[in-house]
Protein backbone atom coordinates (compact mmCIF):
# COMPACT_ATOMS: atom_id res chain seq x y z
CA UNK A 1 0.00 0.00 0.00
CA UNK A 2 1.42 3.35 -1.01
CA UNK A 3 0.65 6.53 0.70
CA UNK A 4 1.02 9.95 -0.81
CA UNK A 5 3.67 12.39 0.27
CA UNK A 6 3.70 15.99 -0.87
CA UNK A 7 6.60 17.71 -2.54
CA UNK A 8 6.80 21.49 -2.69
CA UNK A 9 8.68 23.27 -5.48
CA UNK A 10 9.51 26.91 -6.23
CA UNK A 11 9.84 27.80 -9.90
CA UNK A 12 13.03 29.91 -9.95
CA UNK A 13 11.94 31.66 -13.15
CA UNK A 14 8.76 32.91 -11.51
CA UNK A 15 10.05 33.76 -8.02
CA UNK A 16 10.62 37.49 -7.61
CA UNK A 17 11.75 37.38 -4.01
CA UNK A 18 8.58 38.52 -2.22
CA UNK A 19 9.66 36.13 0.59
CA UNK A 20 6.05 35.38 1.50
CA UNK A 21 6.73 31.60 1.54
CA UNK A 22 9.82 32.03 3.67
CA UNK A 23 7.89 34.04 6.23
CA UNK A 24 5.17 31.36 6.28
CA UNK A 25 7.72 28.56 6.82
CA UNK A 26 11.48 28.97 7.06
CA UNK A 27 11.59 25.16 7.45
CA UNK A 28 10.16 24.46 4.01
CA UNK A 29 11.92 27.21 2.07
CA UNK A 30 15.34 28.77 1.91
CA UNK A 31 16.59 32.01 0.37
CA UNK A 32 19.72 32.64 -1.68
CA UNK A 33 21.87 35.77 -1.37
CA UNK A 34 19.47 37.66 -3.61
CA UNK A 35 16.42 36.64 -1.59
CA UNK A 36 15.18 34.23 -4.26
CA UNK A 37 13.40 31.26 -2.73
CA UNK A 38 13.75 27.54 -3.28
CA UNK A 39 12.39 24.48 -1.51
CA UNK A 40 14.60 23.26 1.34
CA UNK A 41 16.29 19.98 0.50
CA UNK A 42 14.28 17.75 -1.80
CA UNK A 43 11.09 19.65 -1.02
CA UNK A 44 9.39 16.72 0.72
CA UNK A 45 6.80 18.08 3.12
CA UNK A 46 6.71 16.49 6.58
CA UNK A 47 3.17 15.66 7.68
CA UNK A 48 3.27 18.39 10.32
CA UNK A 49 4.05 21.09 7.76
CA UNK A 50 1.39 20.29 5.15
CA UNK A 51 -0.82 23.15 6.30
CA UNK A 52 2.04 25.64 5.99
CA UNK A 53 3.00 24.29 2.56
CA UNK A 54 -0.55 24.89 1.34
CA UNK A 55 -0.50 28.35 2.90
CA UNK A 56 2.73 29.19 1.07
CA UNK A 57 1.19 28.15 -2.25
CA UNK A 58 -1.93 30.22 -1.57
CA UNK A 59 0.06 33.34 -0.75
CA UNK A 60 2.67 33.49 -3.49
CA UNK A 61 1.85 36.61 -5.54
CA UNK A 62 3.75 35.22 -8.54
CA UNK A 63 2.10 31.75 -8.49
CA UNK A 64 5.61 30.33 -8.35
CA UNK A 65 4.99 27.51 -5.86
CA UNK A 66 3.58 24.11 -6.69
CA UNK A 67 2.64 21.16 -4.50
CA UNK A 68 2.56 17.69 -6.04
CA UNK A 69 1.93 14.22 -4.70
CA UNK A 70 4.75 11.74 -4.87
CA UNK A 71 4.28 8.06 -4.16
CA UNK A 72 6.31 6.75 -1.27
Amino acid sequence: MTHATLRVHVDPDKCQGHNRCYSVSPDLFELDDLGISSEAGAGLVPAGLVRLARLAVANCPEHAISLTEVAS
Binding site: Q16, H18, G35, L55, A58, N59, P61, E62, H63
Partner: peptide, 22 residues
Protein backbone atom coordinates in the same frame (compact mmCIF):
# COMPACT_ATOMS: atom_id res chain seq x y z
CA UNK B 1 -5.52 32.53 4.57
CA UNK B 2 -5.27 33.08 0.83
CA UNK B 3 -3.79 36.46 0.08
CA UNK B 4 -1.74 36.87 -3.09
CA UNK B 5 -1.86 40.64 -2.76
CA UNK B 6 0.10 42.91 -5.04
CA UNK B 7 0.92 45.67 -2.53
CA UNK B 8 4.62 45.36 -3.42
CA UNK B 9 3.94 44.99 -7.12
CA UNK B 10 4.27 41.95 -9.34
CA UNK B 11 7.00 40.69 -11.61
CA UNK B 12 10.54 41.91 -12.01
CA UNK B 13 9.96 45.31 -10.36
CA UNK B 14 8.71 43.78 -7.09
CA UNK B 15 9.44 46.35 -4.38
CA UNK B 16 13.09 45.99 -3.45
CA UNK B 17 12.37 47.21 0.07
CA UNK B 18 9.44 44.92 0.86
CA UNK B 19 11.24 43.17 3.73
CA UNK B 20 12.22 46.55 5.18
CA UNK B 21 8.67 47.87 4.87
CA UNK B 22 7.19 44.75 6.52
Amino acid sequence: AQNRHAAFGLGRHRCLGSNLAR
